[in-house]
Design a protein around this nucleic acid. Structure first.
Lengths: 141, 141
DNA sequence: TTTTAAAATTGTACTTATTACAAATTTGAT
DNA sequence: ATCAAATTTGTAATAAGTACAATTTTAAAA
């Protein structure tokens, strides 16, 4: 049985409110690495009182508590991921999409390279061209 | 013999100008992962006509041509690194410093996980607490 | 050496993601 | 029902980065 939205919040010490549940639920249902702005625009129709500040605050809280992961593969804006298992990300330089990449040994890679540092988390970001984009306009890419 | 600043520019198809040389030289002499703003402020006294736009444009050009690497470990601003050999980065969540971490097999890790993607570059970002910060205020960290 | 076109640089104005903060609302205990 | 704490909201501010037109520099041709 997979963890419910409310469970995920509570496991990370976050009191579930309407807004927090909606944001966490959206992320757990859409593994598309959305930005704060995308999340706001998706939820706004069903929660018309929602504020963008709440979205930013909540995402920061969720990330701080380890309920979600912040992805900074895109220099424009931060993206968010409810998949907190160790895996890498790939971003297409042409279309901008962010994909998941399975990586077996991410945790051990990070752990190996400590020299007096305390490593709490590690992110592997790969960039290049995705299946769709590698064919069209390869020179321009 | 290590490559000179001008060589590094020319190797990557960049015509060396006063400003480009100054920026590339600064990066090759300071492996501190500076931001565009830091670079501007360091060079401005000696090049009083320098524009911040030029710094941004030049850094983007250098990165595009592969003469330097963009580091997005910090969600606030992009950092730059003249060390283009494969290595990882560590950022202290307390003091914000970014350190280099040697990693043997970064290239192979990235290559292993392609499934139809063309991977042009890979970055491993680790976060946690550095030697100095892990001792003081460990609870707050 | 003068001319001239392309390339590079500059300054200003703008965009946009994110944050600060104070007011308003909601929650939960008494 | 009351009250304090927690949460949410809206607005205003900040700050990184970009667009763009004007100016300056470069370098080659005449």
């Amino acid at each position: 049985m997979k963890t419910s939205v409310i469970d995920r919040l509570q496991e990370h010490g976050i009191k579930p409110s309407l807004q927090r549940i909606a944001i966490m639920k959206y992320l757990m249902g859409n593994y598309t690495h959305p930005t704060a702005d995308i999340i706001f625009n998706k939820l706004y129709p069903s929660i018309p009182t929602l504020s963008k500040t709440t979205v930013y605050n909540t995402l920061k809280l969720l990330a701080q508590q380890g309920a979600i992961t912040e992805i900074t593969i895109d220099e424009k804006n931060v993206r968010y991921d409810a998949d907190i298992s160790p895996h890498a990300h790939f971003r297409c330089k042409h279309c901008g999409s962010v994909f998941d990449l399975p990586v077996k040994n991410l945790a051990s890679i990070a752990a190996k390279n400590i020299q007096g540092f305390v490593v709490t988390d590690a992110q592997l970001y790969c960039k290049g061209y995705c299946k769709k984009c590698k064919t069209k306009a390869p020179g321009l890419c």
